[in-house]
Write a protein that binds this DNA or RNA. Sequence first.
DNA 1: ATAACTTGCAACCAAATGGTTGTAGATTCC
DNA 2: GGAATCTACAACCATTTGGTTGCAAGTTAT
Lengths: 112, 112
Amino acid sequence: MVVDSEVDRLFHALADPTRRDVLRRSAEGELSVSRLADGYEMSFAAVQKHVAVLERAGLVTKTRRGREQLVRTDPAALRRARQALDELEAVWRDRVDRMTDLLTTPIQEEDR
Amino acid sequence: MVVDSEVDRLFHALADPTRRDVLRRSAEGELSVSRLADGYEMSFAAVQKHVAVLERAGLVTKTRRGREQLVRTDPAALRRARQALDELEAVWRDRVDRMTDLLTTPIQEEDR
DNA sequence: ATAACTTGCAACCAAATGGTTGTAGATTCC
DNA sequence: GGAATCTACAACCATTTGGTTGCAAGTTAT
C-alpha cells in the first residue's frame, strides 16, 4: 500500500501541464535546471519551483555535475502513481465481479 | 491523446484523500451526497464541493432519485488518468529502449 | 399543510499555489 | 583574480483552494 500523503504529493505534482512537460523532457534525457528553464516562458525561479514540487513527490531526482544540477525522472514514482490508480479501479472491479456472481452463480442447496 | 486541461482536472481531483475516499465509497455502491457526507468530519457543504470537483473531472456522475442525488464513479475516467500516466511512462521506456539498442545492436556496414 | 430531508449556491475566511524580483553562494572560464 | 553561469532561497503578490455558515428551493412523509 502507498501512504496517503505520498499519493497526495504525486497527483498534485502531476496536475500541472508544465510539470508534466518537465517530466517528459527529463525522461527523454538528463537536463540541468537551466536548460529545462530555457524551454518555458516563465522565469527560472518558477521552473525551479516546479522541479522542487516534482522532487518532493519523488518523481525526479537531482544529481550535481559541476555547477549544474541534472534532473532525472524516477520511473518507480510513476509506477507508484499507477498503483494508486489501480487500487481505486480494483474497488470498482470487485463490485462488478460481485454483481456478476449474483447473476450467474447457480443457487446451491446450502445457500437457501 | 487526452487534452491537457482534462488531465489537470483529473489529477487535481485525485490529489486529495477525501476525494479519493469518496471515489472508493461510491465505487462500492451508489450513495447519495448526504449519505457520503455522513462519513466525514467536515460539513455537508464541504463534501458537496468535493463531489463537485470529482464531477467536473468526470470521475463521478450524479443521477437524481427523488430528493436525493446518487453519486456513481465513472471507471472510464480512471482509465483516462491511467492512460495519461502510461503516456508519460512510454517516453521514459522509449529512451531506455533506444539506449539498449545502442548497446546491443551489432554495428552494420551502412552505419559507419 | 406543514415539517423534515436533501441539495445547491452565495458570501466569507485562512492557507496554499504559482508566479514575480532580488540577493547570495558555488563553480567554471579567461 | 574577476566575470559569467548556475542554483537556492527569501519576500512579495494575486488567485485558487478547502473549509465554514446561512439561506432558498424541491421532494417526501405525517
